[in-house]
Every structure is written in C-alpha cells, then in structure tokens.
Design a binder for these strands. Structure first.
Length: 408
RNA sequence: GGGAGAGUACCCAAGUUGGCCAAAGGGGGCAGACUGUAAAUCUGUUGUCAGUGACUUCAGUGGUUCAAAUCCGCUCUCUCCCA
C-alpha cells in the first residue's frame, strides 16, 4: 500500500491541493516536504503528535521531511483560529524549545544521514528588508482574499492587528524559500493551516511559476469536536518531566469510547488489517482496545519499557494489588514530621494531588482520599511515622490518582 | 484625532437605588453513587488559610463613606461609530 493510501485509510488526510497529482508524486518520486512547528512551548504536546506521525509515515516511505522551526514566525504568533494574540518570545527561549522538540521527535523521526532536515525560518526571515519584501512578496497577496479566509473570521470579530496579518505572508514566503533552497515541493500541516498553506502554493506559482502542493491532516478532535489533549492541568505533554509516562498512559487508557478507533488509526503504526478487527467491538471489549491504544502510544513516545511499566502499574492498582514500583512518587524527609506524624492534608499538597489545602480538606470530607487503602475519614488525620515502616505509603485521591510517598 | 460602550472568579455571565456579596446562573473542574479505569445520569463541592473564624478579591490607582463590585477622579485595555 502506498503512503498516500495509508494516510488516507487512517483518516489522517483532510484537504489536498491536487489529489491526483499528489498521489502520483508520492508513489513515483522521493520528495522533500515540510511541516512547520512554532516552538512556543518547551515540549511538544499531543496536538503535535499527529504531525509527527504523518512525518514518520512519509519518512518510512522514503520521503525526506524538512522540519521547520518557526523561530521567526514564533515572534509573531499565528492568529489562525486563535482568539487572542499570542505573547511574543525571545530568541533564547525559542532556541531552547526547538531543541526540546527535536529531542522528542527523535523517537519517531530518523535524523541520521540527511534523512530529515531541520531549518529555522528565523535564519531567513529576520534579515528581510521591509521594502524589498513587500515589493517582491507582498504584492502577491490580496488583503480582500486573506480577510475572507475562514481562519481569520473569528479574529475579524474581535480585532486583528496588522502585525498578525503578516503571519500568512511569512509562512508563504517560507515555502517559497524552501522550494528554492531545498527543492521542497509539498507542505503539510494541520487542517487549521490550510489557508496559510495555499498561500504558499499560490506564491510559488506567482513568483517562480512552479507548481507545489499542500496537504492538511485532520486535527485530533474528540467526538464532540473539541481539541483533544486539554486536561485540567494543561496540555498532554510528550515530555516525561512534564507528564510522567504513567500519566501519559492513563490519558489514553481513559479515552472516550467514541475516540478510540480514530486514535488507533492516527496515532499508532498497528497495521490497518488489525485495526479493522476492532472496529466492531462494543462495550467492555472496547475497553480492552483502550489498553492496547495506551500501550502502543506510550511505546512510541516513551519506550517499550515505559509502556510495560505503565501497564503493569495500572493493572495492579486497579485490580487492588500493589505494584508500586512505577507509580508517580515523591519523597519526604523525617524533618517534615511533627511529633512523629504528618497531616494528610500536607501530604496531599506535597504530592500535588490538590490545588490548595482547602481543596484537600474538601476531598477528604467527601471520602475521596485513602492511605494504603484505608479511607481517610477526617481532615485532621495524620500519617504516623510507623506507617512508613516499609519505606513508603500509597496515597490515593479519587479512583485514579496514586502517589507513592517515600520517606528518606 | 472625535464620540459611544465595556472590563466581575478557570470560561461565559448576573449583580451598579452603597451594607443581607467570596459575589446568582450556566459551562468546565474535583469528589461520591452507578459503571467498563468509558459515556450518560444523580448528589456534593469549587478564592486563600491555622476553617463554626480570619484574610485577600470584582482591570489599575487615588478618593467619598461607619461601610464600595456598586458612588467620584485619574490611568490602562478592548469593542463599536465617525475621521
């Protein structure tokens, strides 16, 4: 099966500038394509995951990904679909973030022997001369058309600065630059990038008379149409420091029934033949597919070992047995104790299981906290030094959150 | 540049004859029940803390007052109309 068909069957493709040509191109040639990433955070999150997956699919088929870090454009901020203007970043932060991205992508993308190219658009955008730029590039953009683009609609109601309007022009110029310099003939991106991508396709044709292509893939949405990956504590990060492999695993393990199949197709390399079998699963059968999904995704992003550990820990915890080896943990010192005891509220706060001590109190009152499987009845309870005789205790909040408290 | 209006907690949004306001309602979050570690539903909860009390909040700042989210001055930000 060709990459194109593969991507299509997995439901990754949203829009194409020229379906027939792209299909031919991908099967007859090894092309260079690019995807842009705005390094606005210090870690990728699952919103980026799809893009990396598509890159990986393409790379496995022999095409060469060009990863463009928006060092220049991050200084502006893409207004597409955003309700507010983004804050601007300084160049040290951008560089640091770009390095983090690369590190995380390496688990799916092969960077050896020129199999992938990394560029930073700051390298060419920063030195542009304003007058030259608007004369050569700016003339090709119709403001009327830009304003009618879907992605600016929301901003037109709330206000859009000239500054941000330039984002599309910059991104289009990137494409022109990459085609000239790296013979890059295709740009991929999330479906929200469609306007920006066709901007670049048009620009290549108008300025150099060259035909290039654009392809967007579906955003990772939940069945009710919201962007996936927002949790109470923020985005679902791929960085293990920001979100432990166990929590990462749990995110997928707890996913909505309606989203399981999509995720399996889009976010794993499991063969479609196998995935199709699960399609007719219902009820608790589907529940077991979630375990598979969580395992596969964790394996891709972290490692096989992490995935196995997370699975074991989860299984043990939810079946009642205590495999505490891989549970999130924190350490406390004997100096944290007062008269040989420490309050449960303090432990909850230290473990990050509550937003505030008032929150901790509330949860306890509602019967949501237990220590070593013994329910905490009142907010005044304490944990005794003697309860740590095996070196740790397991603090549980709600049904799914466990933290091992280790006494040093 | 001229004129009109707005800024309330995570978000939306009431409240502006000054006290009964830590602030209605909805969404979201969290916990409990029921379940399949899902969804739906029901219940409770949702500023902070040393929690029957104290403290800090209603864009910022300075006033008036025994008392201000509410009244007055200035500042900032946003939206709309005119240029």
């Amino acid at each position: 099966m060709s990459v194109f068909d593969e991507l299509k069957e997995r439901g990754l493709i949203a829009q194409l500038t020229n379906e027939e040509k792209i299909k031919d191109l991908l099967s007859s040639e090894k092309i260079r394509f690019y995807i842009g990433f705005d390094p606005t955070a210090d870690s990728l999150h699952i919103g980026h995951f799809i893009q990396v997956m598509v890159m990986a699919h393409m790379q496995r088929a022999g095409h060469i990904p060009i990863i463009l870090f928006g060092g220049g454009t991050a200084m502006i901020g893409d207004p597409s679909g955003k309700s507010d203007m983004r804050k601007m970043l300084d160049s040290e932060t951008i560089e640091y973030n770009a390095n983090q991205f690369k590190k995380q992508m390496s688990c799916l993308i092969d960077f050896s022997d020129g199999k992938a190219i990394m560029v930073n658009n700051g390298d060419w955008l920063k030195d542009l001369k304003y007058i030259d730029f608007i004369r050569e590039i700016g003339v090709h953009f119709s403001v009327n058309r830009m304003l009618s683009a879907e992605c600016y609609k929301q901003r037109l109601e709330k206000g859009l600065s000239f500054f941000e309007l330039n984002y599309m022009v910059m991104q289009s110029y990137d494409f022109l630059y990459l085609r000239r310099k790296h013979n890059c003939v295709m740009q991929l991106g999330g479906d929200d990038q469609w306007s920006n991508i066709i901007g670049g396709v048009d620009l290549n044709r108008r300025v150099d008379g060259k035909e290039v292509y654009g392809m967007t893939f579906n955003l990772l949405l939940t069945s009710d149409g919201k962007k996936m990956g927002k949790t109470e504590s923020g985005a679902v990060w791929l960085d293990r420091e920001k979100l432990s492999p166990y929590d990462f695993y749990q995110y997928w393990r707890n996913i909505d029934d309606a989203d399981v199949m999509n995720c399996l197709k889009m976010l794993t390399f499991l063969p479609m033949d196998e995935i199709r079998k699960y399609e007719k699963y219902e009820g608790s059968e589907l529940n077991s597919v979630k375990e598979l999904l969580a395992f596969e995704v964790t394996k891709l992003i972290h490692s096989q070992e992490d995935a196995i550990n997370a699975r074991n820990t989860a299984k043990a915890l939810f079946s009642g047995a205590a495999d505490v080896d891989n549970m999130p943990s924190i350490s406390i010192e004997s100096s944290d104790f007062l008269d040989g005891a420490i309050s449960i509220i303090d432990l909850l706060a230290k473990a990050g299981l509550c937003l505030s001590k008032g929150d901790a109190r509330r949860v306890i009152k509602q019967g949501g906290v237990s220590v070593d499987d013994v329910k905490v009845k009142t907010p005044f309870e304490t944990a005794d030094m003697s309860q740590f005789d095996k070196g740790f205790i397991v603090l549980k909040k709600g049904k799914k959150q466990f933290v091992k408290i280790i006494l040093n």
